[in-house]
Amino acid sequence: MHGSHARVVLGLHRTRLTPQLLRAALTFGVTTVDTAPHYQHGTAHQQLIDAAGNLLDRFTVCTKIGYHHNTATGRNTHSLDPQRLWSSAEAAVRSLGQPPAVLWLHNPERSLAGLPVHHAAEQLAQAAVVLARAARRGWCRSWGIATWNPDQVLPAVAAIRDDWPRPGLVMTRSGLLTPSQALTAAEGLAARCGARLWGMSPFGGDTQDPVWREVDPCQFLAPGQESTRWQAALRLARAVPDGVERVAVGASTPAHLAELITAPRLSVNTRLVASYRRLLERRSAAETSTAASSAGARSGSVSGSVNSGARL
């Protein structure tokens, strides 16, 4: 039996879930799983129950609401409608047979996109009231915001008045391939909410991405350590952004999970990571400046055409 690996969360988004994998997770001390009812075409909760069997009570289960699965069409739609969120929170308890440890408001930016900031703030605050109420009802032990694009959520959070029920947790992308603006926003969102920060998608969503053949993440570790590139990438997902407590990561086999669980013990070269963050920030600033210049040039071209037409 291995020691507890609380810093590693078994993410079930793309994981091929089997009883063998869950038994291995317990053996390795990985006891937290992260899922969502709309994963696996709306069958994720039932798959977890079937695979875990009588071991389910030994896991800390985190799940999400915000996406609503339509079994007739097979599609997921996003909504922050308070009644739909409330019904989803109740359904999550019922389908799992137990209150989840964490109930995440999943990708609220999907419903906030395009809204004026004050309207987005109102919708997000209303959703927060629902999740806080669900926690008081005993439908979850805690609640948080899981967001792929925290830079699209932070402006709404910043516009909410001070008396809103804040999430205790924020989960966002983390790791070397996360864009600079998302890293900065993740840190800002966690600070604004007074929340603990979790990471996800430490490999950028695809371990087959050509970047992993070109860049060895082991170079960002402190010298004198042996590590595979996946162990290094997972460890760095707790350093980028700053302050990540846990990282949700998928694993296809017990052997793959066994490789990953040693990652938290690795030490990071903080100086090199800080330098990398500065490079990302400069690149992001340059891209923003180029985009603004291009937009200005297009605007000038249109304006010139309009003026020329007026003279004609």
Rank of each mutant, 00 (worst) to 15 (best):
H78R: 05
T27K: 09
A91R: 01
A239G: 04
L80D: 04
V273D: 07
L312H: 13
V240Y: 03
S267G: 10
Y39N: 03
T270E: 15
E109I: 05
D163W: 11
E287T: 05
R282P: 00
S174W: 06
G66C: 01
T15H: 07
A191C: 07
G309C: 11
G205P: 04
Q123D: 13
R7W: 04
E122I: 01
Q152G: 02
L131D: 05
R246W: 07
V9M: 05
S284M: 10
T63W: 03
T71M: 08
L177E: 02
P241G: 02
R58Q: 15
W164I: 08
S79R: 06
Q20F: 09
A92Q: 00
S4K: 12
P82N: 07
V30P: 01
A132Q: 13
L280N: 02
S275E: 14
S303D: 14
T147D: 11
A237C: 05
V302I: 14
S308Q: 15
H69N: 05
E187T: 13
V9G: 02
R23I: 01
N269Q: 08
P210M: 10
S174T: 05
S305I: 02
R283M: 12
T207N: 09
E122D: 13
L312I: 11
V157A: 13
P100G: 04
T262M: 10
T172P: 01
L197P: 00
L280V: 02
V9Q: 07
G194I: 05
L85Q: 04
A191M: 05
A92P: 00
Q46D: 14
V33E: 06
L48N: 09
V130E: 08
L48G: 06
A146N: 09
S88I: 01
Q47M: 10
L154H: 10
R166F: 06
Q181P: 01
P99M: 04
T207R: 15
H256D: 12
R75T: 11
G144H: 11
G304I: 07
D50A: 13
R278V: 12
G304Y: 11
G300W: 14
